[in-house]
């Protein structure tokens, strides 16, 4: 289980990293936390000729609210989300997600940017960022550009980044007010054991205003070849007063629009029904958090 040979590059500035990426092209892979890439290299599923380690670049590891967004630097470790009072108090969907990605040891190295750029439908952040309506910031030789998360995941393990671009930041819109003042979210995941990929998982972010769901976005994990936004389930919620019947309708819509593959984790029918149940529960939890200041994230998953 030894990775294939490669040449390691450790640039110390973004300009150097971009110059290396520009000259090496598709023979190079970016090494961030390495918690997906290194296992893939050990299995020889990935055999890059060059690795460009961006761990030595300054200023890619931060969490801050700015200009109406929570800005997350690409090299922010998953464990930093778990340790952040800001995330725990104001971003319950993100807080839920950060607690169930792989295991604590992996989360100490794994990065938010890597989890998204890897574009694995089994990863947890893609669904969460779809639900948040996040924006991805990429830097390349032509400067910086923003990519809407809805346009980011293009195929299995494929994303909208050009070969010479590096993902530098992810932005999540800030909630409107204090916890319980209308915005709420939740991530629910069923896995066979800690550290495994989801059998199915559901990310919900919504707003309740005057007793009506006025905004809802839902992302699904590992039940489609490309990270999936469950727009049918969203439509089942928007304009409705929250109720068990409405939550069930959203669950049934999500079960219908997902596209799971049968594997060791379960049959298609099982995964669809699990997606129905998780959607129903996650929506209920998000509504509870949106409407009650007491019902926030944190504590046991």
């Amino acid at each position: 289980m030894i990775p294939g040979s490669f040449t390691y590059h450790a640039p110390t500035t973004m300009d150097d990293a971009l110059a290396l990426l520009g000259s090496l092209g598709e023979d190079a892979k970016i090494l961030a936390g390495g918690q997906s890439l290194i296992p893939a290299m050990r299995f020889r599923l990935a055999v890059p000729e060059h690795l460009i380690d961006i761990g030595g670049l300054e200023g890619l590891d931060y969490l801050r609210e700015e200009g109406g967004f929570l800005c997350i630097g690409a090299m922010t470790r998953e464990s930093a989300l778990d340790d952040s009072p800001l995330v725990q108090q104001r971003y319950p969907l993100l807080a839920d997600t950060a607690r169930v990605i792989a295991d604590p040891l992996v989360r100490n190295l794994a990065t938010v940017g890597g989890n998204i750029a890897h574009a694995d439908p089994a990863n947890d952040h893609p669904a969460t960022m779809l639900a948040y309506g996040a924006t991805v910031i990429a830097r390349g030789p032509r400067g910086e550009r923003t990519i809407a998360i809805d346009d980011f995941f293009t195929d299995l393990f494929e994303n909208a980044l050009a070969d010479d671009e590096i993902l530098t930041e992810v932005r999540i819109p800030q909630p409107h007010g204090q916890p319980g003042a209308g915005d709420g979210g939740a991530y629910l995941k069923i896995e066979r054991k800690v550290g495994d990929y989801a059998i199915s998982a559901v990310a919900v972010n919504l707003r309740v205003s005057a007793g009506i769901v006025t905004h809802a976005r839902i992302g699904l994990t590992n039940v489609s070849p490309v990270p999936l936004r469950a727009t049918g389930a969203e439509q089942a919620l928007i304009g409705k007063a929250p109720s068990d019947e409405v939550f069930e309708a959203a669950g049934q819509a999500a079960a219908g629009e997902c596209d799971p593959s049968p594997d060791l984790r379960g049959s298609v029918a099982y995964k669809r029904d699990l997606t129905r149940v998780l959607t129903k529960r996650a929506v209920g939890k998000a509504v509870e958090r949106a409407t009650s200041p007491e019902a926030q994230a944190g504590g046991a998953a």
Binding site: M1, Y8, L31, G34, Q35, I38, P39, R42, L51, S79, D103, P104, L105, V106, N108, L109, G195
Partner: peptide
């Protein structure tokens, strides 16, 4: 396979799986 944690060491004081770092 990055599953078991038997190889855990502290890297700069942080617990990591040493089979999953170069």
């Amino acid at each position: 396979t990055t599953s078991c944690g038997a190889c855990t060491v502290l890297l700069e004081g942080v617990a990591v799986k040493s089979c999953t770092a170069f």
